[in-house]
């Protein structure tokens, strides 16, 4: 465990807290992509199958359960709970996620670490997480403006991935047998997707005013 990874996990938890607060207190899922939340639920449910046989630490296992529970709760609330479910706009949030799931599944089958079923599913979840934010970014693009809390949510997610990149660099230089090409590649792609958002997020927050984040 190193500080980058710890802060990365805390930032990931923060993103869940922000989103859960927004949809439960704000009673609205406007501006939140249910598609992205569904992809995250698939990512965590598939990646953490090893909960039952891989025990690395209590911290690890506890957060796996937390991430599965939170992502499932978010999907449930936006899909089924009133009044949030009425604030979700299927016309706007209509990114064809099958075009993300399909290629990731093929990639998981072809490029993985060990050719066992779990390794294929695990690799699938790594690739899927890299692109899971796309429906959300498309939704924000369509809306042009980003609601304040939503912008903090996406920023927290971006920070989590950026900190994980630093964690991999740190581990690469401090551990001798640390090699995770799949994770490094997918994580770099994923962090790249946030760069554009961060630029607009920074522009809008720079003035210190809470001007809404404007995407072109």
């Amino acid at each position: 465990m190193n500080i980058f990874r710890f802060l990365g996990d805390m930032s990931h938890i923060l993103s869940f807290v922000i989103l859960l607060l927004k949809i439960t207190q704000g009673k609205s899922a406007a501006g939140i992509s249910l598609r992205t939340q569904e992809l995250y639920m698939i990512v965590f449910c598939s990646r953490y199958l090893d909960l039952f046989w891989n025990f690395s630490s209590l911290y690890n296992s506890f957060l796996k359960v937390v991430f599965i529970a939170c992502s499932s709760a978010i999907v449930y609330i936006i899909r089924f709970k009133s009044p949030q479910k009425d604030t979700w706009n299927p016309e706007l949030d209509n990114f064809p996620i099958q075009y993300l799931i399909g290629p990731c599944a093929v990639a998981g089958l072809l490029i993985n670490q060990d050719w066992t079923p779990f390794e294929m599913i695990w690799a699938f979840s790594i690739y899927l997480e890299a692109v899971a934010i796309l429906p959300q970014l498309f939704l924000l693009q369509k809306q042009g403006e980003v609601e304040n809390l939503t912008s903090h949510y996406v920023a927290a997610l971006g920070a989590y991935r950026g900190l994980y990149l630093m964690n991999w660099v740190y581990r690469y230089f401090t551990e001798d047998d640390y090699l995770q090409r799949i994770v490094w590649f997918a994580g770099t792609v994923q962090t790249g997707l946030y760069i554009d958002f961060f630029y607009h997020y920074y522009q809008s927050k720079r003035g210190g005013l809470s001007r809404p984040v404007k995407l072109p």
């Binding site: 996990d9 690395s56 695990w122």
Partner: peptide, 10 residues
């Protein structure tokens, strides 16, 4: 390391 195969990250 063994079964974990480096999957000690979330």
């Amino acid at each position: 390391a063994g079964r974990l195969r480096g999957k000690d990250e979330l």
